[in-house]
Amino acid sequence: MMFEEWISSALVCAGAFFYLAGTLGMLRFPDIYTRLHAVTKADNLGLGLLAAGLMLRAESWPAMIKLALIWMLALVTSATACYLVANNALRAGLPPVLGRYRSGSRP
């Protein structure tokens, strides 16, 4: 039991870390396309690892499957939203930042 709790806590912490990375990416990446990467990552890995950690501690089978279902639902909606925003930004002619980029030295 103890071992399981440790794994669960580690997974939850890893999920929180990816949420943090997603927010930092939102704040620091240079344009809308690169920020999309940050959002989908928080959706996929942050929520995924967090749900996996909680699944280990779920009290019953259906509760466990429900957590996985929530994750999959979030994946589907975030992929759809990501494609829509990227496609629309491209059609609207928002120019992506291309080529080598480092903060402070915009090409």
Binding site: L24, G25, P30, L45, G48, V97, G99, S103
Partner: peptide, 23 residues
């Protein structure tokens, strides 16, 4: 996803956000 996620997280946490976006 794990591999790519760690890669993007490294970029986001790095002091200078190194990246090379392309279409």
């Amino acid at each position: 996803s794990l591999h790519g996620g760690i890669d993007v997280a490294w970029r986001a946490l790095h002091r200078q956000t190194p990246m090379n976006p392309a279409l």
